[in-house]
């Protein structure tokens, strides 16, 4: 088990400070003593939304850390490997068939999509447990799911469904309730548990695949835990919030310098930092004085894409 390290303590402290503030922040700032119906707004609207931000961010952060460790590549994003696009495709299908009107069916469809993505990945890459095959299979599944999503949009039964799909794909936590928390939280916690089990194997992979196997790591078992963990965290995140990109890519980078750089030591701090990042980002989009609320997915991409470029530039300097 990872010990409670200094970064973990700092991040827990920051979350403990940010969470209460996030409850008060919004288009309407709440003063618990004076705002009418403050208790209802806090308990039924703001608390579930903030908790959901924490849950989704934690899942994405942990999945990103594990994925980067597994692929031994700091540019890996958990969204790239088929599971998130398959979950999105599942959700899109529910809009397409008009099932999204029922609040439970949309996340259910997305979870089924994520499950199919996991199964496909496991089926194609699981036979050998090889990393190259995993990467290629993941990219192809993602590409196929993306294409089918585009197809669904272009052939949407009516303009309303099309706009619903497009808006949903952009990822947001607007108007989420306790129901979404109950769907995402248990799955994400179970997923982070699976990812923590991969820690030892990911550390061994630092030395390459052959050395890891010589140290007793069973590559098929490791891959199965990884696919399950990423599927549960990313799949449940997409199911309740749509596509929220870049968190899984950025967060492990921000956290890594504060750890001893072993992949196993990065998973829990990345989960906490991801939770904090999505919570702060969601508060920010709520506070911004725009006519309509900026979508969380777009906001994070606006931060994430330039960050990614900066990362590439820095790596290029390192390689030159």
């Amino acid at each position: 088990m990872p010990r409670i390290s200094f970064p973990v303590l700092v991040l827990l402290g920051l979350i403990a400070v940010t969470l209460p503030l996030s409850l008060l922040a919004g288009r309407v700032w709440i003063d618990p003593a004076h705002t009418p119906n403050a208790a209802v707004i806090l308990a039924d609207l703001r608390l579930p939304r903030s908790l959901l931000a924490l849950v989704i961010g934690a899942g994405l952060g942990a999945a990103g850390a594990a994925m980067q460790g597994y692929l031994r590549n700091p540019l890996a994003d958990p969204g790239l490997f088929g599971i998130a696009p398959m979950a999105a495709l599942g959700a899109v299908a529910s809009f397409w068939f008009g099932y999204a009107a029922s609040a439970w069916l949309l996340p259910l469809f997305a979870l089924v999509g994520a499950g199919m993505g996991m199964a496909l990945l496991a089926l194609i890459a699981g036979r050998t447990g090889g990393i190259a095959l995993f990467t290629l299979a993941g990219l192809m599944i993602a590409s196929l799911a993306g294409t089918l999503t585009s197809l669904a949009i272009s052939m949407a039964p009516n303009a309303f469904a099309m706009s619903e799909i497009v808006t949903w794909l952009m990822g947001a936590l607007t108007d989420r309730s306790w129901r979404e928390v109950w769907i995402a939280a248990p799955l994400t916690i179970a997923g982070i548990g699976c990812l923590m089990l991969t820690g030892r194997g990911l550390d061994a992979l630092t030395l390459g695949s052959a050395a890891a196997r010589s140290l007793g790591v069973r590559d098929k078992v490791l891959q199965a835990w990884l696919i399950t963990g990423v599927g549960l965290t990313v799949g449940s995140g997409v199911a309740v919030a749509g596509i929220v990109g870049f968190v899984g890519l950025i967060v492990p980078h921000l956290v890594r310098p504060f750890t001893d750089r072993r992949p196993s030591q990065l998973i829990v701090p990345s989960a906490l930092a991801g939770a904090l990042l999505v919570l702060v980002a969601d508060c920010t989009v709520r506070i911004l004085p725009l006519v309509t609320e900026l979508r969380l997915g777009i906001a994070l991409s606006l931060i994430g894409a330039p960050f990614f470029l900066w990362l590439l530039l820095r790596m290029r300097r390192g390689l030159a």
């Binding site: 460790g69 031994r72 030892r200 550390d203 030395l207 050395a211 001893d260």
Partner: peptide
């Protein structure tokens, strides 16, 4: 087993690297 390629993917401390040998 010491493979030929000598990969070290992450910039860990020498002590952490050597401690990987205790994994089994």
């Amino acid at each position: 087993f010491l493979p030929q390629d000598g990969q070290i993917a992450w910039d860990v401390a020498v002590r952490s690297l050597v401690a990987l040998g205790r994994m089994p």
